[in-house]
Amino acid sequence: MNRIYADHAASTPVHPLVAEEMLRVLTGTYGNASSVHAFGREAKRVVSSARERVAAAIGARASDLVFTSGGTESDNMALFGAAAARADRGRHLLVSQIEHHAVLHAAERLAQQGFDVEYIPVDTRGRVDMDWIREHTRPDTILISVMYANNEVGTIQPVQEIGAFAREHGVWFHTDAVQALGSLPVDCDSLNADLVSFSAHKINGPQGIGALYTAPHIKLPAMLHGGNQERKRRAGTENLAGMAGFARAAELSASALGERRAQSELLRGRLLEGLSASIGDSAFVVNGDPAHTLAHIVNISFPAVGTETMLMNLDMEGIAAASGSACTSGSLETSHVLRAMNLPENVLNSAVRFSFGLGNTSEEIDTIVKKIETITGRVRNKR
C-alpha cells in the first residue's frame, strides 16, 4: 500500500538538506558551547551562526531570538514571561478563542493565579473582531495574544492591525506564527509584534527546536534556571544539531515561499474540484476564510460522515489526515476552533483537516478524492 501523508500542519518530513546539515553537526561538533576550549568555541559558533540565519529569515536581529524546545515552550514563555514582567502595570490579558492549546492552557493557568483573561471571539470564518479588541482593551491590559494563522482551519488574522493598535495603547502583542512560518512572509518588524513564536518541525526542520522573538524593548524573566545560556533567558545545554537544522530549514522555506504557496494552491484546488465533481458540492463544507487562508490547510466537513469514521477509513486506506491540532486530535474531541466559529453541530462533528507539503503530488490528491468518494458512498449505503 502506498501511504499518503496529508497532515503537514501537524509535522513535516525533514528536508534532505536539513538532515545533511544536522548529521554534519552531530558527527563533527560535540563540545559544549559554554566551554572555553576549542571544542566549546566550535559549538558556540554553531549556535551563533544558527541564530543569525534564523533571525535573517524572519526579519529580526540575532540578539532578539531565544531558542526553545518548540512552539509550546515559546508560547508559554511569551505568556508567562509577559505576565511576570508586567504584573506591576496590570493583570488583564486578551487571548483569542482559537489559539493553540499552548496559549490557551497557559492563559488558563494565569487565570488560576489571579490574572483576568478575556477571550476574543471570532466570526464564522475564524477571524477575530477588531472592534471587540478595541472595546475590551483597558488601561490595565498587559498583553494581547492572537495567532498569525490558525493551525486547524488556516484562517489568517489581521496581526499587523492588531499590533499597531496594541502599540498605540502600550500593550504588548504576542502572535503565534508557528503555522505561518514557511507559508506567509514573516518580518517581525512589520508584524508590529513584541513576541513571536516559531517551531522548526512545521517547515521541514527537526522536532524539538523552536524560537521566541522578543522585540528589543522586551525583557522577559527566565523560566528555566541553571546556566547562562541564551543570554540568561533560557538555561540548558544548547541543542546544536537542532539549531543548525532549524537554520537550514528557515533558509530553505524563505527562499521557496512563492513556490510552496503555488504548489499548495494547486493541490488545494485539485482536492476541492475533485470532491465537487465526485460527491457533489452539497456533500461537503469548507471551513475557514477563503479570502484570508493558508493555502496548504483545507478543513472540510462531510456532514453525512462523522470525523472518526472518516479518519479511520482514510487511515485504513493509508491516508493520514487529522481532526484538528496534533496535540488534541488523538482524543477526537470536538475542535475548540470550529466551536468558537459557531458552526452547526453536523459540521463540527464531521470536520477533517488535510494539509499539504513536501512530497505531495496531484496524483495523491486524486487518490484522496477517490477514497473519500468510496467512504461517503459506503456510509450512505448503510443507512
Rank of each mutant, 00 (worst) to 15 (best):
R260V: 00
E251T: 12
S190V: 06
A200V: 04
G242E: 06
L195M: 06
E273R: 15
L184M: 12
K202M: 08
G227T: 12
Q179N: 15
L257I: 09
C188T: 13
F198I: 14
V178I: 05
M310Y: 09
M243A: 14
D176G: 05
A177P: 02
G258P: 07
A177E: 05
G208C: 06
P290V: 02
N192C: 10
L191H: 07
R260C: 00
S197L: 01
P221M: 09
A241M: 05
A211K: 07
L184V: 02
E308W: 02
Q263G: 03
N204M: 08
G205W: 08
P185V: 00
G182H: 07
N192F: 07
M243N: 07
K219F: 00
H201I: 10
R234S: 00
N299Q: 09
L240V: 11
D189S: 11
L252F: 04
L184R: 12
I209Y: 01
K202N: 08
S276I: 00
Q207V: 12
L181D: 11
K219W: 00
Q229W: 05
G269E: 15
R167Q: 15
L240C: 07
D194E: 15
D194A: 07
R231D: 14
I300P: 00
N287H: 09
A254C: 09
G288W: 06
E168R: 15
A277G: 12
H292Y: 09
H174T: 11
G280L: 04
D176W: 02
G226D: 10
A295G: 04
G280S: 08
N228A: 14
H225W: 04
A211T: 07
N204C: 15
L184F: 03
G288A: 08
G288C: 07
A235V: 11
L212N: 14
V171G: 04
D187R: 07
S255L: 14
A291G: 13
L275R: 04
S276V: 00
R268T: 08
G274V: 04
L212K: 14
L191A: 05
G269P: 10
K202L: 12
R260M: 06
N287F: 00
G227A: 02
L220Q: 14
A193S: 15
T214Q: 15
I209F: 01
E168H: 08
G245T: 13
P221V: 11
A241D: 14
D289P: 06
A211H: 04
M223V: 06
G226E: 08
R270N: 12
T237K: 09
Q263T: 14
A247R: 10
P221K: 12
R233P: 09
Q229T: 13
R231A: 11
A304C: 05
N287P: 00
L272A: 02
P216E: 07
G258E: 15
E168N: 13
D289M: 03
A215E: 14
L267T: 11
